[in-house]
Simulated scan of single mutants.
Amino acid sequence: METTLIYKDGSSNKFWKINVSGKSYSITYGKIGTVGAVKVKSFDSEEACQKDADKLIKSKMKKGYTPANAVDQVMKEGSMTEIVFWEMLKTAKQKGEDTEEQIEWMVSHLSKKPVKDIVIFDYFFNQNYLKSYTSDLWAAAYIIMGGASDDSFDYFRAWLLFQGKEIYDEVINDPEKIIPHLKVLEDEEDVPQLEDLLSAASIAYEEKTGLNYDEYFDLYVKLTGDETIPPDIEFDWDEEDVDGLKKKFPTLWEKYGDNPLEY
């Protein structure tokens, strides 16, 4: 259930929208024509949630709020699109001498955006990030780094995504295409991992609102409906089967099999 109310008088021109879904609701509010601020509240039952929502609607209407017309352009849509998401990654890579400075810039830049844009940025990240959760790419990461735990593979995939859409898609389709993009890391004796990118959006949210990760996650799920859990991978390789790995990715094995990138 969604209800949008507006309030107009000589000095005010604002909206208030509540969206009830199951045991929680989200409220978006602000000046008409803006994206507005967002907050979420959860309850133990759907009945308690609906009761509280009805109470809030009645309270707002007593204060002079009236239902918005369906044709009214009450809220401005957020500016975050998938194109903007990839452009932000590209820009971030130009904003520092190393990934630490680049992620710091991204967090700072995101924290200045509306909360909804922060959440949608994270949504695009997660949807694209999930594409790289494959047996083939895990095998490639294992060869390149001489091993790849669950966490290590997560950080590897984040690093790969940070290289940009074209490289990301290319390497997912053919992991051996990653080799030219590892040259800088070889020279710096570094590894292809970027843990900090995984939490960039939630840290930006915390900087903007002062609220913690649990509150951010509740808002994220409420606004996007995304509770995606990576599926179980059916591995077609075995870490102890050296011949199998050599056969699977011969070029990667020739370059990194006996000389992996390690800390």
Rank of each mutant, 00 (worst) to 15 (best):
Leu182Val: 06
Ile178Thr: 08
Met106Asp: 04
Val20Arg: 02
Thr134Val: 00
Lys51Asn: 12
Phe249Trp: 03
Glu97Arg: 01
Trp237Asp: 09
Ile167Trp: 09
Ile172Ala: 07
Leu252Tyr: 11
Ile167Arg: 09
Pro67Leu: 07
Leu137Arg: 04
Ile178Gln: 07
Tyr256Val: 15
Ser79Phe: 13
Thr3His: 03
Gln73Gly: 07
Gln102Lys: 15
Glu239His: 13
Thr209Leu: 07
Thr228Ala: 14
Thr228Met: 08
Lys208Arg: 14
Ala53Phe: 07
Ser111Ala: 12
Glu189Lys: 14
Leu182Met: 09
Asp243Ala: 04
Thr66Asp: 00
Gly10Glu: 08
Ile229Met: 14
Glu239Ala: 11
Gly22Thr: 01
Glu240Thr: 06
Pro114Ala: 12
Gln94Trp: 11
Tyr155His: 03
Tyr213Met: 02
Val184His: 03
Leu219Ala: 12
Ser24Trp: 05
Asp243Asn: 14
Asp196Met: 11
Leu5Trp: 02
Ile172Met: 10
Thr251Val: 14
Pro260Asn: 11
Val71Ile: 06
Glu97Cys: 03
Ile233Met: 11
Trp86Ile: 13
Pro192Thr: 10
Met145Val: 02
Lys23Met: 10
Asn259Leu: 12
Lys39Cys: 08
Asp169Lys: 13
Leu182Gly: 04
Glu101Pro: 04
Glu97Gly: 09
Pro180Leu: 04
Trp138Glu: 01
Thr3Val: 15
Glu87Asn: 15
Phe15Pro: 00
Thr224His: 05
Asn173Ala: 14
Tyr168Pro: 05
Val115Gly: 08
Lys255Asp: 06
Lys58Tyr: 02
Lys93Leu: 15
Asp187Val: 10
Leu56Gln: 07
Ile143Lys: 03
Leu161Ala: 10
Leu223Thr: 01
Ala204Gln: 07
Trp16Ile: 00
Gln193Leu: 08
Ser11Gln: 05
Cys49Ala: 11
Asp117Pro: 07
Asp136Leu: 00
Val115Arg: 09
Gly225Trp: 09
Arg157Ile: 06
Lys247Ala: 13
Asp117Lys: 07
Glu239Val: 12
Ile143Glu: 04
Lys39Leu: 09
Asn69Trp: 00
Ile229Glu: 13
Tyr168Glu: 05
Phe162Ala: 15
Tyr7Phe: 15
Phe249Val: 08
Leu110Cys: 06
Pro67His: 02
Lys31Ile: 13
Tyr205Thr: 02
Glu227Gln: 09
Asp154Leu: 00
Gly96Lys: 10
Asp44Ile: 14
Pro67Lys: 06
Gly225Phe: 10
Lys60Ala: 06
Val74Lys: 02
Thr28Ile: 06
Tyr65Asp: 02
Val74Asn: 02
Ala92Met: 15
Glu170Val: 05
Lys116Gly: 08
Asp150Lys: 01
Asp54Ala: 12
Lys113His: 11
Asn126Glu: 06
Pro67Ile: 01
Asp218Leu: 12
Ser111Thr: 04
Pro67Asp: 03
